[in-house]
């Protein structure tokens, strides 16, 4: 069971994420978009969207710091466990709640604004459920363990396990002892990763950072493939009119 949950399942989810992204990029570049609903409604979005997105970016940075950077590194530069913990809980809670509030505003807007709701697909609804579950579960686990409880140092258990996935020597044993709250959050998160390429969330992978270094005006030559048709090999001779088969 441990191996299934903490080895097979994460690898499967990540494979689906990577494979799904490649497939979607090849097959559906045209559908790769934010599908913004700002045209329908602006005043609520103006508050909800930045709150959610900046919050979630902070959450992302927090997760990178907590999961990918080994504890020994931060201690080597002189950050004590207590200092790190205080900082993480403080910033993390702010980020988590602004994400949650932002998302609540956005979901309420999506349901209550007629045109926005009309433009919401089933795929969107399913995505919102998974996304909201991951965020709520993560926040709940953190708050329960650190704010209400006596504190839990996931950098001793979850982080080494997560990194071990990338070393290709996964260590499921350490996950067995992790509090159930964190376990469910992690399982939900990998479900979200697997679902990611098939939702509008793909727009996160096209964050336009290249804009900062690009010249303002882009020039491009005319498409070298007029008509988008494949080139005819020369040995097929001159083009022929189609011949109709008579019965």
């Amino acid at each position: 069971m441990n191996v299934l949950l903490w080895v097979v399942y994460p690898y499967l989810a990540m494979a689906v994420l990577a494979g799904g992204l490649i497939w979607r990029y090849r097959y559906d570049k045209f559908g790769w978009t934010t599908r913004s609903s700002q045209l329908y409604e602006t005043s609520v979005l103006r508050w909800g969207s930045p709150l959610f997105h900046f919050g979630v970016l902070m959450v992302l940075i927090g997760h990178i710091g907590g999961l990918l950077i080994p504890k020994s590194w931060t201690e080597a530069v002189g950050i004590t466990e207590h200092a790190y913990h205080l900082m993480a809980v403080f910033i993390g809670t702010i980020a988590g709640f602004s994400t949650l509030i932002g998302m609540a505003i956005l979901i309420a807007r999506r349901r209550l604004t007629g045109p926005v709701f009309a433009a919401t697909t089933k795929n969107d609804k399913a995505m919102y459920v998974v996304l909201a579950a991951v965020i709520v579960l993560g926040l709940w686990a953190t708050v329960r363990a650190n704010v209400a409880g006596e504190g839990y140092d996931y950098r001793e258990t979850v982080a080494p396990w997560f990194r071990s996935l990338f070393y290709l020597s996964p260590d499921p044993e350490v996950m067995a002892g992790v509090p159930v709250g964190f376990q469910i959050h992690i399982i939900a998160a990998f479900a979200l990763f697997a679902f990611w390429p098939f939702t509008r969330l793909v727009h996160a992978f096209s964050a336009p950072v290249g804009y900062l270094t690009r010249p303002y005006v882009v020039y491009r030559s005319r498409d070298p493939r007029p008509g988008l048709r494949p080139t005819r090999p020369g040995w097929e001779g001159p083009p022929q009119l189609p011949t109709r088969n008579r019965d």
Partner: peptide
């Protein structure tokens, strides 16, 4: 355009 999707065609 942040994505660089809008371009001016060099030919015309």
């Amino acid at each position: 355009c942040p994505s660089g999707a809008i371009y001016k065609r060099a030919e015309d």
